[in-house]
Amino acid sequence: MTTPELRDKDHQILQQIHQGNNDVQKITSATTHENHHVTYAFQKLEDLGLIEVTKPEGTVERTINGQKRVFQHPKQAELTEKGEEHLKESEREHIDEYDDLSHNELVEKIHGLEKQIEELEKKFEVFRDQVQELI
């Protein structure tokens, strides 16, 4: 049941909805996605039958960056059965990617990932030092 034309961003938003971040504001807070990107993804995912979108009436109070704010209730989404199936299938596809590898290929893959993590940790340390110098 592969769903056509799903971007990584769309898949991330499906995962956020599954994890309970079911409205535009919660998703933008939990990810790097902007409001209009999430709204566009909601429309696309709804058109594909993966989510149902509602716009509750009234306002909602949230704490954003340490400040309480009241605003119109954002659009909310709920996964449909088709959306749940898509997430399960994509999880299986990800696991299948490793099932077909030999022992040596798995070891090689792990070593590559460990090297990549080490490089990212070094870059993060440099970045953190740069930020601390600016503060």
Rank of each mutant, 00 (worst) to 15 (best):
K115D: 15
K122R: 09
E91F: 15
L50E: 07
I135V: 15
E85K: 09
R7P: 00
D99R: 06
G112I: 07
L134Q: 08
S102R: 01
F127I: 05
I13P: 02
A30E: 14
K109Q: 13
L79W: 03
V38E: 08
H36R: 13
Q116N: 11
E93W: 04
V126M: 10
G49R: 03
L45K: 03
K75N: 11
P74A: 04
V70M: 08
E121V: 06
H86R: 12
E93Q: 15
H94M: 11
V60M: 07
L6T: 08
H36M: 09
E114A: 15
Q16A: 07
R92P: 00
T63S: 13
N22M: 06
I95H: 10
A77D: 03
E93S: 12
D23I: 05
Q15T: 12
H36T: 14
Y40M: 12
Q25K: 10
E46N: 05
E105M: 05
R62A: 09
D129V: 01
E118V: 08
E89A: 06
E85L: 10
N21L: 02
T63W: 00
V107R: 10
N104V: 11
D96M: 08
R92H: 03
E85R: 08
V70F: 00
H11Y: 13
I13D: 02
T59G: 00
E121M: 04
V60I: 15
Q130L: 09
Q130V: 04
Y40A: 12
V126P: 00
E84M: 09
K44R: 12
Q72C: 06
E119V: 12
N104A: 13
V53T: 14
T3K: 05
Q116T: 07
K55Q: 14
S102T: 13
E97M: 03
H111M: 14
N65I: 07
L120G: 05
